[in-house]
């Protein structure tokens, strides 16, 4: 009886058309919601690293779903097998659908072979956020780091992903850099593929 003769809204969620992903809501609506997410989690933890952990978890849940969604919509289920391929997928496709633009930059770490950085001058989640003095290097971008981690993990590229503020000369606000450090097996696999 699934889906037979039922109105669109009563269809099973996977039987409904996927949509183009062009719908929008106001930035304020998102900012208020995100602020509640942060405040709620702040009340649940004792220290900054727990807070980061919980925000990352929330982001992870978004990332893994975003990957599934985009794989169906944009890539006709073709999967990335190479590190550079998946990175450019995150930097362009994922960024574009989530934030409406390609990320400002994607760079390879200079010190370590397995590190990559995606930087954004003004990450949407940090737009209305000022971190209190006592909270050290806490960065709400951790949520976005979680999203990136979710996408990478889901695609079979486990990595450690963290968010950092990086001061930019001549600008009042620091940019946010998402640092991606791939797991060893990912690096080895990529080397093997030549």
């Amino acid at each position: 009886m699934i889906g037979v003769g039922r109105a669109k809204q009563n269809l099973n969620v996977v039987d409904r058309p996927l949509g183009k992903g062009k719908a929008e809501v106001s930035l304020s609506a998102f900012a208020f919601l995100f602020s509640e997410l942060v405040q709620y989690n702040q009340g649940k933890v004792e220290n900054i690293s727990d807070l980061e952990h919980r925000l990352e978890e929330a982001g992870y849940a978004v990332g893994i779903r975003m990957l599934e969604l985009l794989c169906h919509r944009e890539k006709a289920n073709r999967r990335e097998t190479r590190v550079l391929g998946i990175l450019s997928f995150v930097h362009s496709t994922v960024w574009k659908s989530l934030f409406g633009k390609v990320a400002d930059s994607l760079e390879k770490g200079t010190e370590h072979e397995d590190e990559y950085m995606i930087s954004e001058k003004e990450l949407i989640v940090n737009r209305f956020v000022s971190v209190p003095q006592g909270m050290g290097g806490f960065n709400c971008g951790t949520f976005v780091a979680g999203i990136v981690k979710g996408v990478l993990d889901g695609a079979g590229f486990p990595a450690r992903v963290t968010a950092h503020f990086v001061a930019v000369e001549g600008q009042a606000r620091p940019r946010t850099t998402i640092l991606i450090k791939f797991a060893e097996e990912v690096v080895q696999r990529d080397a093997r593929l030549g």
Partner: peptide, 24 residues
């Protein structure tokens, strides 16, 4: 004048919040 963001980001973020609450 009203800036907008992708609705899916909003939807999925809300989902993440509800899921956190259900766990907590």
């Amino acid at each position: 004048a009203i800036e907008r963001v992708n609705a899916e980001l909003f939807t999925l973020t809300y989902g993440a919040i509800v899921r956190q609450l259900l766990t907590d």
